[in-house]
Design a protein around this nucleic acid. Structure first.
Ligand SMILES: [Mn+2]
Ligand SMILES: [Mn+2]
Ligand SMILES: [Zn+2]
Ligand SMILES: [Zn+2]
Lengths: 143, 143
DNA sequence: ATGGTTTATTAAAATCATTCTAAACTGTTT
DNA sequence: AAACAGTTTAGAATGATTTTAATAAACCAT
């Protein structure tokens, strides 16, 4: 019995969705369970859609996109852009940064505390900082 | 007489392209002139193609893409990804970072010296740091 | 529960940026 | 000038994402 099968996860997902002002539909609850069952994840829409299909959950790709963007809007997810033409959705919405392994396309979290951003320029007049993204791009170390 | 019209710019562009190991074709020279005539620029392929058309330079969009990617490969340009589905090409290839104004889609350079990146985590074993991108995302300051 | 209203899902088509293909052309070398 | 390799291009193809318009499900008030 995986964490996903446990009924309390369905209830928790439902609560989380309702708490953020969205209707807890079958599809949204199912996707939330996949997304939030375990710790930090970085998924593409395609990948999540495939994962859902593999678990026997029938959801259209359009709904996966809709749901991911809604989850971003209400703060359940964050969208990360490191790769041209493909968005990653991040279940870690706290302040943090990323290693991006260019060869594999894998993203790994870096805790905000590990990066010192105390020395930064002022934002231009009339603007405020929405968020700061630090991406450390990695290559395979072929010595 | 704009900087673009000056013949020495054509020669300079040609030299720069030849020096990086590419053939100085009509199209590449024309695009290099547009790109490097003035200081730091952040352009999309579409935008550069439109700009070329406006100056009476006939280049296909495929060639613009080819040229931009070749220029990236030989180090004349850098590719920046901040927006889903659209790449920016940056004429500033030195170490620096960016303000990204989400409302306008505009990118502005931040000198590397203005960001202190002395405190960073070690890259995972078997990998080395290719480059570090800091993007400060800005919103309009509606007080 | 039922009915009415609003919001969500979906298959399919459409869009948009980007890449590919294969044929015509150009720059370079001999 | 001929030969060759490298380049350009129109147009088709791709791949991710969005839109459409019809159907279905969630919600709210009987
Ligand atoms: Mn998006
Ligand atoms: Mn690219
Ligand atoms: Zn993350
Ligand atoms: Zn820049």
């Amino acid at each position: 019995m995986t964490g996903l099968d446990r009924p309390e996860n369905a209830a928790a997902a439902q609560d989380r969705i309702r708490a953020s002002g969205l209707r807890p539909t079958r599809q949204r609850v199912a996707l939330a369970r996949l997304l939030f069952a375990r710790g930090s994840r970085h998924v593409t829409a395609e990948a999540l859609h495939g994962e859902a299909g593999g678990e026997g959950i029938r959801v259209s790709l359009a709904t996966v996109y809709n749901t991911l963007h809604q989850f971003v809007r209400v703060g359940l997810l964050r969208e990360v852009m490191v790769n041209p033409g493909r968005s990653y959705f991040d279940t870690n919405v706290g302040a943090h940064h990323h290693f991006f392994h260019e060869a594999s396309g894998e993203l790994n979290d870096i805790d905000a505390a590990e990066v010192d951003l105390s020395s930064l320029p002022e934002p231009p007049a009339g603007t405020r900082i929405e968020r700061i993204d630090v991406v450390i791009r990695l290559r395979d170390d072929r010595s």
